[in-house]
Simulated scan of single mutants.
Amino acid sequence: MNTLYDVQQLLKRFGIYVYVGKRIWDIEVMALELDHLNESNVITQKEFIQAKLVLKHEHKIEENKTENNNI
């Protein structure tokens, strides 16, 4: 699992589709949904960790874009 698309496909396996309207918000909601899947023990620990790392990376990219646009 390397991309945001991969995380979306993982969530899609469980009927979870996320679209809030702003990419950074989508990433945050996906992280919450992953937490719920992990608490329910329906995904492996490896899938959970990989997906969270991808989301953390993508979130940081979006934060940097926002900061650069505000300068």
Rank of each mutant, 00 (worst) to 15 (best):
M1I: 10
V54S: 06
E47M: 08
V54Y: 00
H57W: 08
L37T: 07
V20M: 07
L4W: 02
E28Y: 06
L10W: 03
K22H: 09
L53R: 15
V42D: 03
H59N: 08
L10Y: 02
Q45G: 14
E28L: 06
K60Y: 09
N38F: 14
H36S: 11
Q45F: 12
D35P: 01
K65S: 03
Y5H: 11
Q50C: 09
N69T: 10
N64V: 07
N64T: 08
I27S: 03
I16P: 01
L34D: 01
F48G: 03
E33F: 01
I71N: 15
I16C: 10
V20D: 02
Y17R: 13
H57I: 12
V54T: 11
L4V: 15
K52H: 10
K65M: 08
N2H: 10
I27W: 00
K56R: 11
V29C: 01
T44G: 15
D35M: 07
E28M: 09
I24M: 02
N68D: 11
L37D: 04
F48S: 13
E58I: 05
V54Q: 08
E63L: 15
G21Q: 06
M30K: 13
I71F: 06
L34P: 00
I71P: 00
E58P: 05
E28D: 10
K65E: 14
N64S: 10
Q9M: 13
K22L: 07
K22N: 06
L4M: 06
T44W: 08
Y17Q: 13
D35L: 06
K65A: 10
N64K: 14
A31K: 14
N70R: 15
A51M: 06
